[in-house]
């Protein structure tokens, strides 16, 4: 999980999803996850996943990398599918696609929305300590990843991590974590001191929802609503079970078009190709 890359994607893209504000995108993710919870249809899930993949291409971000980030839960879904294996490929596919689709919906939101915006949108629904904790954890994560990067380099250079010496590796790695904690705490205490000097009284400023394009936000919500409506129709309306197959047929050209669009050089895609 490359948190730095995710943060960079969220802050430097210019696609319609980047232009939408955080709340509609959270609603979009919620609707997609609700459809994943509701459905049992393999073809619907395949269609939804292809649609989301098409959206990823449409963002102009490096799609294979984004899709790979969202593929992490597939490892565990595969284990689940293997455990429940009874020769039914469709049943196994449903489990794997449920994991992939829900994760891709979440990842689309975080690669197109700066984390402070996501947290600011959640703030009204969370107790103050948790809302502030989310902001500080996010900030501390980058601080810690920097420290960890340096620590791992130092451990390797000085022979602290070597093949075959498991006990020594665990001892050195654990001391490294301890060192990280102490250094991280020192920095966070200084950070707290600075916050107090600047008038911190238990509420961080800056945690507000930034406005985005209403049209882009509405587009995201409508996409999510359409996916959920389809899931509900397939699940509860007799005679509409075959809609899932048509959904796949409709999603495939959308994916092809989005992929072609993503490959076509333009300003918002250029940045990733150069980097």
């Amino acid at each position: 999980m490359d948190v730095s890359a995710i943060d960079y994607y969220a802050n430097h893209g210019g696609s319609f999803l980047h232009r939408a504000s955080a709340p509609p995108k959270l609603v979009f993710a919620g609707l997609v996850i609700a459809s994943v919870v509701v459905t049992r249809d393999f073809y619907f899930l395949l269609g939804a996943y292809i649609t989301l993949a098409a959206l990823v291409f449409r963002t102009g971000l490096p799609a294979p990398r984004v899709i790979t980030i969202a593929a992490y839960p597939a490892i565990f879904a595969l284990i689940f599918a293997a455990a429940g294996w009874n020769g039914d490929w469709i049943g196994a596919g449903v489990i794997i696609l449920k994991a992939l689709t829900a994760a891709l919906a979440s990842v689309i939101v975080i690669v197109t929305t700066p984390y402070p915006d996501v947290f600011a949108s959640l703030r009204p629904f969370l107790p103050k300590i948790i809302a502030e904790g989310l902001f500080l954890t996010y900030r501390s994560l980058f601080l810690l990843l920097d420290l960890m990067d340096n620590l791992l380099k130092a451990l390797r250079v000085r022979g602290g991590i070597s093949r075959g010496k498991i006990v020594r590796n665990v001892v050195n790695f654990s001391s490294g974590i301890g060192l990280l904690l102490v250094r991280g705490l020192d920095i966070s205490e200084k950070f707290y001191g600075v916050m107090r000097v600047r008038g911190y009284d238990g509420k961080l400023s800056g945690g507000y929802v930034r406005g985005g394009s209403p049209a882009c936000g509405a587009g995201a919500v409508l996409t999510g609503a359409a996916i959920l409506a389809l899931a509900l129709s397939i699940r509860y309306e007799p005679g509409l079970e075959s809609l899932g197959v048509y959904f796949v047929y409709a999603a495939l050209p959308a994916l092809a078009l989005s992929a072609a669009w993503g490959l076509y050089p333009k300003w918002e895609a250029e940045a990733w190709k150069k980097s």
Binding site: G133, S140, G184, L185, S188, D201
Partner: peptide, 28 residues
């Protein structure tokens, strides 16, 4: 949240941030 003193929470927020970040790093 009811159990912790609000003054204590303010002081410990940076610590919560660092410890939570370390847990995330460990879990990944």
């Amino acid at each position: 949240i009811r159990r912790v003193d609000s003054g204590d929470v303010k002081r410990k927020l940076p610590l919560i941030g660092i410890v939570s970040a370390l847990m995330i790093a460990g879990m990944t």
